[in-house]
Computed example of a mutant assay.
Amino acid sequence: MLCAAVVHVVRANVVDVAVFGGTGVLMLVLLRRDLATRGAPAGLASRWTGAGAALLVGGTVALQPRDSALVQVVLAAVGVVALLVLLRAGSGAPTLESEPLARTWVWVTILLAGCVVELVSFLAQPDAWTDNPDHPTLSALVDPMLGDHPARALVAAAWVLAGWRLLRLLADRGPGPGGAP
């Protein structure tokens, strides 16, 4: 997170510096604290809450200009809400129904390789605002597809729904103190 914040300092993107930098610092602070374990909020189990959030975010992205302050605030608010839900759940590993597969390292390796390729592509740019057509970053490839309001709305809604599912999995930390959820 802190490395991403540094990249956004170079790009002079104040909102992303605040989001990535603040989240990174908060993660470092929380690593040193012992949070009480509690269950996930009741509203998190409802599919309608996730669908409503996806509709709200997708609608905002569809109706506002791409770089509007409202879009930036709504997208940042999604992260803040997710962070608060996870902090409320407390410490401890999420309860999973099965053991991680032995081939999990393959996916980790693929994702890390993708991060390295993205970093190398970013560093190959002439400057932080000019794309390099020989080594494009992911955003340089995706930006033309997200120029259309409906496409941006669909991607934003899918992003919220995928995040909602992940949040539901991560917030379930098992029974709290004394065996109570």
Score class of each variant (00 low, 15 high):
Arg33Gln: 14
Val71Leu: 00
His135Trp: 11
Ala12Arg: 15
Pro94Ile: 00
Ile110Pro: 01
Pro65Tyr: 04
Pro177Glu: 03
Gly79Ile: 04
Gln72His: 14
Arg11Val: 14
Ala51His: 12
Asn13Leu: 06
Val155Ser: 02
Val10Thr: 11
Ala76Asn: 04
Val85Arg: 02
Pro41Ile: 06
Cys3Trp: 15
Met145Arg: 12
Asp34Gln: 14
Phe122Ala: 09
Thr104His: 05
Glu118Phe: 00
Gly163Asp: 03
Leu119Thr: 13
Gln64Glu: 13
Val25Phe: 05
Cys3Val: 15
Glu97Trp: 06
Leu141Asp: 02
Met145Phe: 08
Leu87Thr: 12
Thr109Tyr: 00
Leu101Trp: 11
Ala69Lys: 06
Trp105Lys: 10
Val15Ala: 15
Ala162Gln: 03
Ala102Pro: 09
Trp48Leu: 15
Asp127Cys: 07
Gly147Tyr: 01
Pro181Ala: 10
Ser98Ala: 14
Ala158Leu: 13
Ala180Val: 14
Leu26Trp: 11
Arg32Gly: 12
Asp131Ile: 09
Met145Cys: 00
Val74His: 05
Gly22Glu: 07
Pro136Lys: 06
Leu70Cys: 05
Ala62Asp: 00
Val61His: 04
Val57Glu: 06
Thr60Lys: 08
Ala180Lys: 14
Pro65Thr: 12
Leu87Glu: 05
Met27His: 14
Val73Asp: 05
Val19Tyr: 12
Pro126Leu: 06
Gly24Lys: 06
Arg152Cys: 03
Val71Pro: 01
Leu55Thr: 15
Val29His: 11
Gly178Met: 07
Ala140Lys: 04
Arg47Glu: 10
Ala42Phe: 01
Phe122Ser: 03
Leu141Pro: 01
Leu2Asn: 10
Leu119Ile: 07
Val29Gln: 09
Val85Ser: 07
Leu56Cys: 07
Ala62Thr: 03
Leu169Val: 15
Ala4Gly: 15
Val85Asp: 06
Gly174Gln: 06
Asp148Gly: 01
Ala128Gln: 09
Gly114Asp: 04
Phe122Gly: 10
Ala180Met: 06
Ala158Tyr: 02
Trp107Gln: 08
Thr130Asn: 03
Ser98Cys: 02
